[in-house]
Amino acid sequence: MEKKYNTSFSYAGYSAQSSLEKEHMRAFPTSGDKETDSFTITKTDAGYEDDYINVAANAIYVAYVCDGIKTILPDTEIKVFAEITKTSLVEVPTVDTDLQGKVESSLWVFIDGATFSGQDLTEFKANFNDYLTEHQLYGMAQLVLLNDGKIAYPTKYNYTDYLSEEHYAVRETLYVNK
């Protein structure tokens, strides 16, 4: 792994083979975060397979999605979190155009209710769908219009807490398929 990606990794856990899953270990970049940057290494007949590329591409992917949203909603505060669920990337991307047609993900787009209204969500949803489709970024996106004053609180560690009804005014799901 370290030779393959020119990065040092740390051990995060191990699961023995069972009837439900193959033997695998969890690792994370030593310079990363064990909780959010962990990935799986699975032993196969041909050697080892890993899904580190999903973790490594995540930051550039989120930045790319944020840039797209900012063209649609230039004056709205947002926070975007993503989990790349499938990719055909063979190396860590260096530019965002490397992502087009090669990534599927789950996205969570939090929108500040103080600077955006629920009436505008339908139009944003359509425009965001067009952006994702045009850039061949597939998967599921949850659009969450947070209550006023809540946008400051979601982080990569706790954003799922803000998916409960007490924190948002509107929550919609968007699917973009190939």
Rank of each mutant, 00 (worst) to 15 (best):
E134H: 15
T160G: 03
A59N: 15
D130H: 08
I53Q: 02
A46I: 03
T160W: 15
N129M: 12
S164N: 10
S88N: 05
V90H: 10
E91Y: 07
F28R: 00
D37A: 03
H135A: 07
I78G: 01
L107W: 05
S19P: 09
S106V: 13
V65Y: 01
L132V: 03
G113S: 13
E165M: 14
F124P: 03
M25T: 01
A57L: 12
V95D: 01
F28N: 00
N158R: 11
A59G: 04
D45L: 02
Q100F: 14
D98I: 04
Y61G: 08
D75H: 10
Y48E: 01
E166I: 10
T155V: 07
T155F: 11
K43D: 06
H135C: 03
K86S: 12
L99P: 06
D33T: 01
I78A: 01
V92P: 08
T40S: 13
K86Q: 11
E35L: 04
N58D: 06
S31Y: 13
D67G: 12
F39V: 00
T122H: 06
L89P: 02
D96S: 15
T30D: 02
S38Y: 10
C66H: 09
T97W: 06
F110T: 05
I41F: 00
Y162F: 14
T160P: 10
E35A: 13
G149Y: 01
N54Y: 03
N127I: 12
G68M: 09
G139D: 01
I151V: 13
L137G: 08
T97R: 08
Y131C: 02
F81V: 11
R26M: 15
T160C: 05
G139H: 03
Y157P: 06
V65W: 11
F81T: 13
E165D: 15
D50T: 10
S164D: 08
T40A: 12
L137Q: 10
Q100L: 12
G149W: 08
D37Q: 09
E91A: 04
V92Q: 07
H24D: 10
A126Y: 13
Y157I: 04
G68F: 13
V62H: 01
A114I: 04
D50L: 02
D148G: 14
G47S: 11
I84A: 01
L145C: 09
F116A: 00
E134S: 12
T76D: 05
G101N: 02
D161C: 09
A126C: 07
L89K: 11
